[in-house]
Write a protein that binds this DNA or RNA. Structure first.
Length: 304
DNA sequence: TTGAGACAGCCTAAACGAGG
DNA sequence: CCTCGTTTAGGCTGTCTCAA
């Protein structure tokens, strides 16, 4: 565990307002939240802190090669993480937002009727392609060259692997539940993307690949909390995954909500998972409908 | 050994179809 | 006939497989 921030629930619930959803399925549940942008100001600062803390590990990773005191790059002016993530392509930032909201929802709203889910770390540091891209961006700044972050040619592929993982523990601290979260964040809803997300979750193994990445990541931290998590994740990786319960979660963030028919509340199906979901696990679908997606990305990641 | 081609992951944008 | 929603094609890079 290397992240601890929470936002206060009252402003959060006023900003993301839960919508009533009908539908009863044995293993599938949909929840929908709709943004009330007018209520964002009260949450703004907290949410920025939350989103930035999620990226702290990636920043530390970027800086790691420059820690040597003899390095001429140790001057903060040349901070290799200075443009992270603000100068990355908007689509990348949207992806980060989606993953962050997935974690935020699980930590604040709960899932499967439980509110004791833990997200020990986010996996942003494994986005190698953007790290390499960042080198190029930094070079441009050093050379005084222009950089247009949202130009099409600045787009980079997404990261492979799990978008986020959450866990529940028993009284002894042993991991009892693993929640694999797939996150999507689109300006406009896309059924193909919904289908893909369901398919990817269904294909997920009982032991998600992200567990190994989490262990690797946490190994960089010497705090007790990090070490405790390494121990329980190692146990899960070696043997615990056989008995721990695996759950699936989809966090679908969209920049608008359905207009027609008037009765329609969500883009995601409400009664049963999409047909491309072929697994038989408990599945928690979360949909976030934003009034101002672009503005949120700018606020959280570009200091606008 | 090189190279084409498919894939994976992130989405957007244009084209299409159906309903009011 | 216009608008909204769905489908399809496309762009980015790195990796991997199969073929010449």
């Amino acid at each position: 565990m290397i992240r601890f921030r929470r936002v206060t629930l009252r402003p959060l619930n006023a900003w993301l307002v839960a919508q009533p959803v009908t539908g009863s399925h044995r293993k599938y549940q949909l929840r929908v939240w709709r943004e009330v942008n007018a209520n964002f100001a009260a949450l703004r600062d907290e949410l920025i802190d939350y989103a930035q803390e999620a990226l702290d590990d990636a920043r530390a990773r970027i800086r790691k090669g420059f820690e040597d005191n003899l390095s001429p790059f140790s001057d903060p002016v040349d901070d290799p993480a200075a443009h992270y993530p603000a100068m990355l392509n908007r689509i990348t930032l949207q992806g980060y937002l989606g993953e962050t909201l997935a974690g935020l929802a699980v930590e604040h709203f709960g899932a499967f009727g439980k509110t004791d889910w833990h997200v020990p770390a986010f996996l942003f540091r494994f986005h190698d392609q953007e790290f390499q891209h960042l080198d190029l961006i930094n070079e441009r700044f050093l050379m005084g060259e222009p950089h247009a972050p949202d130009a099409e040619e600045e787009m980079r592929p997404g990261r492979t692997g799990d978008d986020a993982l959450a866990f529940r523990l028993d009284a002894q601290g042993k991991i009892t539940h693993v929640l694999a979260l797939e996150a999507k964040c689109l300006a406009t809803s896309n059924t193909g993307t919904i289908s893909d997300a369901h398919g990817k979750l269904a294909a997920g193994p009982r032991r998600p690949s992200g567990i190994r990445e989490l262990i690797t990541l946490l190994s960089d931290y010497e705090t007790d909390a990090a070490q405790e998590w390494i121990a329980r994740l190692l146990e899960l990786y070696r043997d615990g995954f056989r008995t721990a319960k695996r759950r699936d979660g989809l966090a679908y963030t969209v920049g608008h909500w359905p207009v027609r028919p008037a009765s329609r509340v969500s883009w995601l199906p409400s009664d049963a998972p999409h047909t491309s979901y072929t697994a038989d696990r408990r599945f928690d679908a979360m949909e976030f409908q934003l009034e101002d997606l672009k503005g949120l990305v700018d606020t959280l990641y570009r200091g606008a």
